[in-house]
Amino acid sequence: MSVLVIAEHDNAELKPATLNTVAAATQLGDVDILVAGDNCSAVADTAAKIAGVGKVLKADAPALKTGLAENIAPMIVELSSGYSHILAPATTHGKNIMPRVAALLDVAQISEITSVVSADTFVRPIYAGNAMATVQSADAIKIITVRTTGFDAAPAEGGSATLEDVSNIMDAALSSFVGQELTVSERPELTSAKVVISGGRGMQSGENFPMLEEIADKLGAAVGASRAAVDAGFVPNDYQVGQTGKVVAPDLYIAVGISGAIQHLAGMKDSKVIVAINKDEEAPIFQVADYGLVDDLFEAVPALSAELDK
């Protein structure tokens, strides 16, 4: 039996999280991929090139334009026969849709897997990643969301999948899209950036974040934040790294003015190298940092920026 991956995209571009999800799926069987959207041919073509994908199912209709779970979930259920597993990235898009699919199929969902043990057994973090649970599913079809940091991306090139159109697309007429306020940035996307620099409450205000942006631009980094910085309105919600925000695992994570609460660590402790800048030497962030600097960030950050120019 094959495995179906739900692609993440914005109708124009395929999102990198899809590649990590395909990587998880290839450990389970032959991979098909569903591109559900509106005017999404370009995405379907990109998806067809992913190494390891056999077939692209393209569901193209206005009802699917904005990712409404009420419209997408029943369609996935229709497509589900013949698949042993259905996987989506554990993004807000995947998290919104997949439990709806699982409930309609009367099966459990296995959330945010970080590794595949066998076709029915998976590892997933619980309690903010302070424990890892190995779970075995007895359901006939496994509905899974994939934590992207657990799997290296599948190659975006090298495949030549066939294309198949999905018909029977319905508008459930339960919900409609009103609008969005997306954060625009020239910097890399937080969850796939090689370097991330995050600010916490210690930043004191949103006006001080350009200090971090300056460094981000020198390192090709994305900017993130703690919950406290988001709650205080320094930066938008999509900057939040942590148990209930985004999970990142870059080569380098720089935490500035962040204490290191377990909920924050849950989102970044799998980074390769962690740097912490904090004026309190007792701050728990230093327990996970590879390099710690006890200093006032308002001194250290400008100095760091200058040093990077040398």
Partner: peptide, 21 residues
């Protein structure tokens, strides 16, 4: 779902403190 095992995650080894930037 059957929980087969619950484990502590791998611990990070302690790093070093640096003097300055």
């Amino acid at each position: 779902l059957t929980v087969l095992k619950v484990e502590e995650p791998a611990k990070r080894i302690a790093g070093v403190m640096v003097e300055d930037v």
